[in-house]
Simulated scan of single mutants.
Amino acid sequence: MSTGIDAQTDALWKRLLSGGSGAIWIATIVLFAISPLVSSGSLSEAAVRGMLPFAAVLAIAAIGQTLVVQQRGLDLSVPGMMAFGAVLVSGLPQWYGWPPALAVVAAILLPALVGLLNGVIITAFGVMPLVVTLGMNAALLGTVFAISNGTPAGAPAGLSAFAKGYVGVIPNAAIVAVVVTVIAGVVGHRTIAGWRLTAIGVSEPAARALGVRVVLYQTVAYGLAGAAYGIAAVLYTGYVTTPPLFFGETYLLPTVAAVVLGGTALTGGRAALVSTAVAALFLTQLGQLLRAVGWPEPLQLVAQAAVLLAVVLLRALVPTIARAISARRTPSPLTA
């Protein structure tokens, strides 16, 4: 009996310490628990209400990155995608007289089409995802500069009012993030399309052998990622009102960190979409806490990178250590 309990305990610790999905939930609870001890005002109502919209933006963008990582890619076009979405939703009404609602649609749809283009180039022509998305990022940033002529535009009044609004005490941006996360989680884990995306991420040859249309599903994954970046950009633009042209550069590392902390392997496979959103909340609260104690932004980025490195190392070391402990506990045939 004790052997079975020991095995279950070992499995639990291995799962928690190896950076799986469960670990980020515990880490987030611990972070919120210790935040008031580190900085007394870090969990005040004003602080939380100010933090949640930025957590929402990161969560939605990170879900897009998760869809790409699930297919064994890494999307380096996040900065350009988000800047593109922001300049569309703010600039089209201000400079070209578009209705704000139509500008919102364009800011989501056009990044989705760019994502589809990324997917087509990667899947149909076999170009490395890093190369394609890096090149697309440069093209998008150039497009943003051309559209704006180097001058940021302000968000439409209606969008700004929505992004800064509340339902009770919950920010509208957080509600949008929850809706996007729930939809992504249900589609990713409860539908045939989600299962097929997982199967492709695990093994393309096996998925093809099962009759899955690999190119189609991978292309759609990149398109959905683009749509997620567009939604995140729309919310960010509405909340800050006049975003810097290239604000998306600050979201590249955090989206990757949220994916890894959430438990999605960089080698592809099962996408931990809901846990990715929790990781975004963790990273945003961590950044707010570090700002509260006086850390400048460069050191905050170093802290995010350190957390990411720690998780990657744990994932590599814990299984090895667990196997070594298991081998010591297992009696050899000569001593049995």
Rank of each mutant, 00 (worst) to 15 (best):
I325D: 12
M81A: 08
R329D: 14
A306P: 03
P298A: 10
P333C: 13
L281E: 00
P171V: 00
I34C: 10
A107H: 10
A272G: 02
W195G: 15
G226Q: 04
I29H: 11
L130G: 06
A316L: 08
T151N: 00
P53L: 09
R15L: 13
Y251F: 14
P111Y: 07
V127S: 01
A316S: 08
G158N: 13
L134T: 00
N172Y: 06
A322C: 11
W25T: 05
V215M: 13
Y222W: 14
L117N: 03
S40R: 15
V68I: 13
A265P: 04
A46Y: 14
L117G: 12
G80R: 04
A61T: 09
V215C: 09
T264V: 01
L235F: 13
W13N: 08
V57S: 05
G73A: 08
R49M: 09
A157E: 15
G294N: 00
A184P: 03
M136G: 02
S77C: 00
L37A: 13
E45P: 01
A258K: 05
V259C: 02
F282E: 02
L141G: 01
L309N: 03
G269P: 04
L110T: 11
A279D: 08
G119C: 02
Y229D: 04
V167S: 13
V57E: 00
D6L: 15
V68Y: 12
A327I: 00
I108V: 15
Q71A: 12
V38A: 05
L17P: 03
T237Y: 12
A316I: 05
A271R: 12
K14N: 13
Y217T: 03
A257I: 04
G150T: 01
L283T: 01
W95N: 14
F54D: 09
A305W: 01
R190W: 11
V293P: 05
L74P: 00
V178I: 14
V259S: 04
L17V: 04
A279W: 11
L252T: 05
G262V: 07
V182M: 10
A322Y: 11
V167P: 02
T276F: 05
